[in-house]
Design a binder for these strands. Structure first.
Lengths: 182, 182
DNA sequence: ATTGACCTGTCTATTACTTCACAGTTTAGG
DNA sequence: CCTAAACTGTGAAGTAATAGACAGGTCAAT
């Protein structure tokens, strides 16, 4: 008899929050989320309070804070400590820029592959498929062209040509991209 | 006498590529970038070829490939292996989405802080400052509003109100955001 | 009671580094 | 020539956030 109606075991808690058992074990080990009790058999017993704490933890994790930061936030509870948030926000901005540059870089690499010796049939259709697979919708794809046009117009032109897109459509795309009118 | 004009020491190489000495030591240890030679004293001697290899490594790292993948790419040189790139591209798309959601979340948290008890004077000016500090330019800020409006119109409204922006301007901003006309 | 599925705890491995400690080497200045 | 700073090497240990292996515990159905 474990669940006294209000407690739950580690795997159940993990599933409820979309985490892995290992993660909760880890959180226990570092003292971030020790279960309120144990059963006779030594099983961890998580209470409602534990669940609430975990919810806050997940919330902060979602926002990308480190466990150390979260510990600080939870212990010095009350004070929102906007400094931490602001710092993280700044970091996020950098990360976004970095990711976008990665994407551009990868794009050019794939372009190189497509244009180079080993042409794995990366034509327009294939590209659109890949971009969709990467989670892009039409709007995002428009933004992608806009970014490409803004940062590297020449490469953008080259890229479109490499996809075998007719000149007339290239003009249209680049014009739209330049205006950001998506 | 170390530098025979074409070789350089570990720290110099590290500085040239914006890496730490430890990183290069690590790359040597795992056999990813062993220096071409050593001085009599045993100091690592990096040649031009080593630098080129490191440049490729950095290039791939920039794109987010793991060192294992990079090793594969560099050893099976020639074959572009578009599979790896494509896979990474997919991952990137996911990461970008994730980051954007983080940003939104953080935004709402900061909003809460601003609206809540501990008001660290997060008004409009402060926000713009923060967003700029996060690397946003006007265009990016427009996109940010657009995203906000698209995904959470109510929260967007609330947010703008919380910044003390007059109703008339809020209308204007939200209308523009909805159209994505930035 | 027993089987089999699923659960538990602990311990170890992973990635890409970083930090540390300690001893030898090079270099610039006096 | 000497000394102090700055560099070098090795090796060990630490980091985040899990993932996986493993032996054993628990539970529902038979």
């Amino acid at each position: 008899m474990l669940a006294t109606m209000n407690t739950c075991t580690i795997t159940k808690l993990a599933r409820a929050f979309g985490l892995s058992r290992s993660t909760l074990l880890y959180y226990d080990r570092i003292g971030l989320l020790p279960p309120s009790g144990r059963t006779a058999a030594g099983y961890r017993c998580y209470t409602q309070r534990d669940r609430q704490r975990l919810e806050r933890i997940c919330h902060f994790r979602q926002a990308g804070l480190t466990l150390a930061d979260i510990r600080t936030l939870l212990s010095s509870s009350g004070k929102p400590n906007a400094k931490l948030l602001e710092r993280r926000f700044r970091e996020l901005g950098g990360q976004l820029l970095e990711l976008r540059s990665q994407q551009r870089l990868l794009a050019s690499m794939l372009k190189g592959v497509a244009a180079g010796k080993c042409p794995p049939a990366v034509d327009r259709v294939m590209w659109v498929k890949m971009l969709r697979a990467a989670g892009m919708d039409d709007r995002a794809m428009g933004r992608w062209h806009t970014e490409f046009e803004r940062r590297a117009p020449d490469a953008h032109q080259e890229f479109l040509v490499s996809l075998g897109i007719p000149e007339s459509e290239i003009q249209r795309i680049r014009k739209s991209s330049a205006e950001g009118a998506w």
